[in-house]
């Protein structure tokens, strides 16, 4: 083998070596610290329909007569729903206070929120409350609880719309 051939083979081996080192290393390194080792994760995620805004109206006989036969419902109810107001306190500190609008062109859909936050692990006092009607003065749905969060634990706070209560998953 001539010296030129040797240079060629060594050069090629070096190039392949650098390439696989580059691909092999950055394929999963350096590790990314997604969460501090002494932290836990809270996920506040809920879907709930706010109360309907406005009252149903009794239709008069004249009104009903003007409607097609298939649409003659005795009550005319508004579709628009109230936005939700949600607050989350962690160890007495408000970490979230948000007004969540209902979905849909007529604002008649469910309102939903998904919020992720990292908190220190250990004993944690959580307070969550929600209004589902703009006229409510107080928060009708609320829970306050002391939880022990392990490092790396994910605690989900959801709302059971059937039972009308918050739940920790």
């Amino acid at each position: 083998m001539s010296s030129t051939d040797s240079v060629r083979w060594i050069g090629q081996a070096a190039a392949y070596g650098v390439f696989v080192l580059f691909v092999g290393y950055f394929s999963n390194s350096p590790g990314y610290q997604h969460l501090a080792p002494d932290q836990a994760m809270l996920k506040l995620s809920l879907r709930h329909s706010g109360q309907v805004l406005g009252e149903c109206k009794q239709m008069s006989a004249e009104d009903l007569a003007r409607l097609p036969p298939t649409m003659r419902a005795p009550l005319d109810c508004p579709r628009e729903r109230s936005p939700l107001e949600i607050e989350l306190e962690v160890n007495g500190e408000t970490r979230l206070s948000e007004r969540v609008e209902p979905r849909g062109l007529h604002s008649d859909g469910m309102a939903s929120i998904y919020h992720r936050l990292n908190v220190p692990a250990g004993p944690t006092r959580l307070k969550v409350r929600m209004k589902d009607h703009v006229d409510q003065q107080e928060f009708p749905y609320a829970v306050e609880q002391e939880v022990e969060l392990r490092p790396g634990q994910v605690l989900v706070i959801d709302f059971d719309s059937q039972e009308k209560r918050f739940e920790f998953l």
Binding site: F26, S27, N28, L35
Partner: peptide, 28 residues
């Protein structure tokens, strides 16, 4: 050669109740 020297491996099985602090991000 790269596959034999540094095989791709998995982390622990997924469990939505815990989250790893550090992840082996694929930077590409």
């Amino acid at each position: 050669v790269l596959s034999l020297l540094k095989p791709a491996i998995s982390m622990a099985p997924a469990d939505m109740s815990i989250v790893p602090a550090e992840v082996p991000l694929d930077w590409f």
